[in-house]
């Protein structure tokens, strides 16, 4: 699933009078309760977030503890004492699939949010600078963006990870750097439209510094479309992490990740060990779906033209 293009994003502006914060939250809650899917998406994401943060407390086993005698046990298999030891079964080394799934959520969310934060921060700063200053700086930053867009991202990521080596930090960095262009282009377009507005001219006339105008005056007014993009972007970054881990270029194989679990399941699928692929696959699908639904809702919610339209 790809993030929406610039054309799909909603342009908001300072022309509307900002509602008091409490009203906004109340309106958001009303909108969420009216539309069931975004609420479900939030519930799913909350569950995954809790699982990620409370992993050690709620995981039934050590995710890396092997027991090769008990390898490839199907889900809900009872032992001699009539007790289910592994609710979602075990993998090829006898590790508990449920525990690995719970710990895998950590990596997916960590990589997803951190990479989007890095890409967003970099993109917004560069995009706003380009849009506000214009001229050669604008041209230079935008040509950089064009060059990066000319490379297929996954190929670029593979190239960097082969050179730098795999690992969470490198993965987050490359995924983050890969996202900046999207934010930069939106931030630039928004800044260009805002800098001609009277409230910006007034701030400059009152002697405010350019950096202050840029980040204190303009930024709050262009945040809405960026937040929408970020919500979609988290989903695509999680998918990219899964793809890179599947290719063996993500985090080290000893760290449980959903993509890595999928990769390990390859050789077992022909033999009918479906649980090794289905559970991490469903986890990835649910997370990505939830972020996308949430992104759709945010886009509609923050669009003044759709206000009051269900």
């Amino acid at each position: 699933m790809t993030p929406p293009s610039v054309a799909q994003t909603v342009v908001t502006g300072p022309s509307r009078t900002p509602a008091p914060r409490r009203d906004a939250w109340r309106r958001a809650w009303r909108s969420l309760t009216k539309a069931v899917w975004p609420l479900l998406a939030i519930v799913v994401l909350l569950i995954i977030t809790v699982a990620a943060f409370a992993g050690p407390a709620i995981a039934p086993k050590d995710p890396n503890r092997q027991n090769i005698i008990n390898r490839l046990q199907p889900p809900m298999q009872v032992d001699r004492a009539g007790v289910v030891q592994h609710y979602l079964g075990t993998d090829a080394l006898g590790r508990d699939v449920l525990s690995r799934l719970i710990y895998g959520a950590r990596v997916s969310l960590l990589v997803g949010f951190t990479a989007v934060f890095i890409g967003g921060a970099l993109g917004v700063v560069l995009g706003m600078t380009a849009g506000f200053v214009g001229g050669r700086i604008d041209a230079f930053i935008m040509r950089l963006a064009d060059i990066q867009l000319a490379f297929p991202f996954i190929l670029l990521a593979i190239m960097f990870l082969v050179v730098l080596g795999s690992g969470v930090l490198n993965l987050v960095l490359i995924l983050g750097i890969g996202q900046w262009v999207t934010y930069a282009r939106i931030a630039r377009a928004q800044t260009m439209s805002q800098r001609e507005k009277e409230y910006v001219e007034a701030a400059l006339a009152l002697g405010a510094r350019r950096a202050s105008v840029l980040f204190k005056t303009i930024l709050p007014n262009i945040l809405a479309p960026l937040i929408v993009i970020a919500s979609f972007n988290v989903a695509s970054v999680i998918l990219a992490e899964a793809a890179l881990s599947f290719l063996g270029l993500g985090v080290p194989p000893t760290v449980p990740t959903w993509g890595g679990m999928l990769a390990e399941s390859r050789d077992q699928l022909l033999a009918g060990r479906w649980w090794l692929a289905v559970y991490p696959g469903v986890a990835i699908m649910l997370t990505v779906l939830a972020f996308n639904i949430l992104g759709d809702w945010l886009r509609d919610f923050l669009d003044p033209r759709l206000r009051g339209v269900d």
Binding site: R65, L93, T254
Partner: peptide
């Protein structure tokens, strides 16, 4: 890879903390 990980587990079990690098 699985053999190496299993060896790592056996060595860790006797107190030789083994990090497996695949």
């Amino acid at each position: 890879a699985n053999v190496a990980l299993a060896v790592g587990q056996y060595l860790s079990d006797v107190g030789v903390q083994t990090d497996v690098d695949l």
